[in-house]
């Protein structure tokens, strides 16, 4: 049997990849995908523990996360499209309207 730590290491790797992607990429779509990556990293650890302890709660949580992610994707992509329409760019460095 594959030890638990392997799963967890994979999950952590995915999560860290997501973070790094989030931080270094400029394109909004890529950033968005990085977020999904992070979520999936978390999902993986949920599933791992659920399997390990024979509890169904973790798996249910994964479904929640997936639903939220889907909703997020729908709204997020819509926003991204709106931003692209307005500014003709998806580079986050240019989108700095939050600055005072």
């Amino acid at each position: 049997m594959i030890p638990l730590s392997w799963y967890l290491l994979l999950s952590a790797t995915l999560f860290c990849l997501g973070i790094v992607g989030f931080l270094v990429r400029r394109n909004l779509i890529t950033i968005f995908m990085s977020i999904e990556l992070m979520l999936n990293g978390v999902n993986l650890s949920f599933v791992t523990f659920a399997h390990q302890w024979h509890l169904v709660k973790g798996q249910i949580f994964v479904f929640f996360v997936m639903v939220v992610a889907a909703a997020e994707a729908a709204v997020g992509l819509a926003i991204i499209i709106a931003i692209f329409r307005a500014r003709a760019t998806l580079a986050v460095d240019r989108i700095d309207l939050m600055k005072l």
């Binding site: 989030f22 931080l23 986050v92 460095d93 700095d96 309207l97 600055k99 005072l100």
Partner: peptide, 17 residues
């Protein structure tokens, strides 16, 4: 403190992380 609020998404994210 306002200096912190660069308006740059990635810098916010970095601080968050």
């Amino acid at each position: 403190l306002q200096k912190w609020q660069s308006g740059n998404l990635r810098s916010y994210a970095a601080w968050l992380a």
